[in-house]
Design a protein around this nucleic acid. Structure first.
Lengths: 157, 157
DNA sequence: CTTAGTTAGGAGTATATACACCTATTGTAT
DNA sequence: ATACAATAGGTGTATATACTCCTAACTAAG
């Protein structure tokens, strides 16, 4: 395995590597991780995660609703939503029943779920305001608007 | 179970529900899902995911590096990174060895990994440019800048 | 040198995510 | 009425994510 006369080309150039630091996917995921942990922390005392708060709020808003319809609204994979609902059903926050169309499964928020949502809302609100305050209202608004725009752009195609 | 004289208070008011649609966590995660799927699609032909491309690019940039140091750079939980490296080690893109400090595990990119990165880079580049183009360069730049700002803000506290 | 504290990492557990494949049910064309 | 297409959902599998608890190894205090 002596040194070849033809140099091995580097995998990618240094400038390309720097570019990869701007990856839309990486940066969005990184921000998601940090913000998810922040919301998770704020609701840990009442046994809810940030994602579950969102699920509960949507269940409340649209209850009763089919799994697939809810997945379309939240822009999440149908099977993902189905699985995410399981721990919430186990803890009694929602219930899932068969609909008249017996293929469908109908998601309904329970009284326990409504109470939990009432309990969670002030925590969510405080956390949300904290983030706005940390970022500055203008920056935050710009970010949310940019993100919404991104989601719209990607949905079109 | 007759109707009570005191009405049951609703879990949260309608205006509060609308507010929840602006949840920083929900919106970031939603965008992450869509963008992750877009990058995953673009690299499926070569058997890489968007997250794995990022991992590979960082392994290349910092190789050799300990797991914990790499997790600090990427701002991801140490145990998460450790687990994410497993499938990449299995497919031979990286190798993980003990360091001189025998507590540490050293991550190194392999030649196979370098070749895969060279293969993946144009796909990544195209996908990244597609998103910029869909959003408009100015909006995209603003978003990335806002997201970086968010990450910085959340790190400080 | 020994002991106590610190650090690096793994294992167990639980949730979040989505793709491929499957079944059951409904709707539709003939 | 039947056959076929379309729809709703579940299961298997795999990765992504992080928290808690654990062990091994290094380091510093005495």
């Amino acid at each position: 395995m002596g040194k070849n006369t033809h140099e091995t080309k580097p995998a990618i150039a240094l400038k390309d590597l720097a570019e990869c630091g701007q990856c839309t996917c990486f940066n969005l995921r990184k921000a998601s991780r940090i913000v998810t942990q922040y919301f998770d922390d704020s609701m840990r005392s009442i046994g809810l995660r940030g994602t579950q708060f969102t699920l509960l709020a949507n269940a409340f808003a649209y209850s009763p609703i089919t799994v697939t319809r809810m997945s379309e609204i939240m822009i999440v994979d149908r099977t993902t939503l189905g699985r995410n609902l399981l721990p919430m059903e186990k803890s009694g926050l929602i219930k899932v029943e068969s609909g008249d169309d017996r293929r469908t499964r109908i998601v309904k928020i329970t009284d326990v779920g409504k109470r939990k949502l009432t309990e969670a809302y002030p925590l969510w609100k405080e956390t949300q305001e904290n983030i706005k305050q940390k970022m500055g209202l203008e920056n935050w608004g710009s970010m949310i608007s940019n993100i919404s725009n991104l989601v719209d752009c990607m949905q079109e195609s």
